[in-house]
Design a protein around this nucleic acid. Structure first.
Lengths: 235, 235
DNA sequence: CGCGGCTTTGATGTTCATCAAGTAAAGTGG
DNA sequence: CCACTTTACTTGATGAACATCAAAGCCGCG
């Protein structure tokens, strides 16, 4: 695959960027301009790796468009998916300010656009502007806390409960609809919930048989939201 | 149990406090004095609750002495242990700057002392002092990342692997010794690794039978560190 | 059109939770 | 200090949940 990045550096639109309210509030016009000048908007195609575990950190990334997965290799060498996130929700591994290299890998599940700001500029802005720093702490810790909670929710459920939980998660958090196309393969769901892909598929089949969902390939339609919730809570 | 807090407000020793290097570097003498004046050092006895899930956040806590556990109630109402931490490692839930209330509960596994600083003072210092903010971001995110990784490590192992992993964790991270007293009951280990307490006990018995550990009650001695590592990695 | 990867289902065996029953340890009130 | 109660620990037996293996169909892609 061609890993060359397609860099689009448009005439600056940071001033009206929707991300401003989220992570870049409280900046002066001058600072916004500096970000504008140095930022890069990078495009990634479906399947492309954005950052790799162990790679040195050069920039702070914020997802503008698309969908990404955060993952790593487990002790046994299997891929372990940590989180799946949509724009305005994902920021770089929270360790970008702490450690020199990425702890996890990141790749694009759909064609995606990330806004990349040099890490040193971010540091500089944090040091200079306390309100910005305080806001950033909020954003970073909300992201971390969500990942922690997600892991706990998965761990506390059995197979069926985990499947129900992720279906509800996709439906509510990602697609805001009862019918959607899964952005991931069955195998990836398995890597996400730490179960075998055969049993993930089996559970889908059972949910289909019981009339709780319909599914054709990656398209999922939730028929009985209540039952799915019961399974998620019981499991 | 008497939940009244014993508050010890000594003559100020913040200037020479060991925590300064960790989370409170880069503060002016004036700011250190302000922290000194307003901070409270609270003592908690073994078993005492420090913060409860849902409680409003009033202060930022940093563990000075002792050992604490972070936990919550799972969907099914069971206690789920998120992390066990020793001094210089634990800071308040990272969400203290984001949300108004605690997401998780915190209690003392051993008699402990926490340094408590009003959350508003922390905010003020962050806003005022960028270097302080940057350093705090490092500390907070390192804590979060460690908790995330811990969860992933547990999730990727089977029963025996999880047990081996936590024994190595206690031995290396907490006690720095091959022989130590577990700070938690078998049941709590079960809540930590999301397994049943009966099987936790059974696995301990097997490790004992195979000559990999010795155990008398809560005292654990690791006899064969290498085998324990193999089990941890294979599982 | 043929190859390889993803999906599906069944069969089999392993791992783990649950239940039960008993022992040790630790707190509690007289 | 002892009898009593409760809580933690331990072990075995059983069945449920889940992984693994295998075989076949499907789909996309070169």
């Amino acid at each position: 695959m061609d890993t060359a990045l397609k860099i689009a550096k448009k005439k600056c639109d940071c001033f009206s960027c929707e991300l401003r309210d989220v992570a870049f509030a409280n900046l002066s016009q001058e600072d916004i301009d500096r970000i504008c000048d140095s930022k890069e908007e990078k495009k990634y195609s479906r399947g492309e790796i954005i950052n790799e575990e162990g790679e040195p950190v050069h920039d702070f990334k914020y997802l503008k468009n698309g969908l990404v997965k955060l993952f790593r290799k487990s002790v046994r060498g299997e891929e372990q998916i940590i989180a799946i996130a949509r724009p305005l929700e994902f920021v770089s591994n929270t360790n970008v300010f702490t450690e020199g290299q990425y702890r996890y890998s990141l790749s694009a599940l759909e064609d995606s656009v990330a806004c990349c700001i040099r890490i040193n500029l971010m540091r500089e802005l944090i040091e200079k502007n306390g309100k910005f720093a305080l806001n950033l702490i909020s954003v970073l810790s909300r992201t971390s806390e969500n990942i922690i909670t997600l892991g706990l929710e998965i761990r506390s459920r059995n197979l069926a409960g985990r499947i129900a939980y992720v279906l509800l998660y996709f439906s509510r958090e990602i697609y805001h609809s009862g019918i959607f196309d899964l952005p991931v393969s069955r195998k990836e769901i398995a890597d996400f919930i730490s179960m075998s892909s055969a049993n993930v598929i089996r559970t889908f089949s059972e949910l289909r048989r019981d009339g709780i969902i319909k599914s054709y390939g990656r398209t999922i339609e939730i028929i009985d939201m209540n039952k799915l919730e019961v399974i998620s809570k019981r499991g």
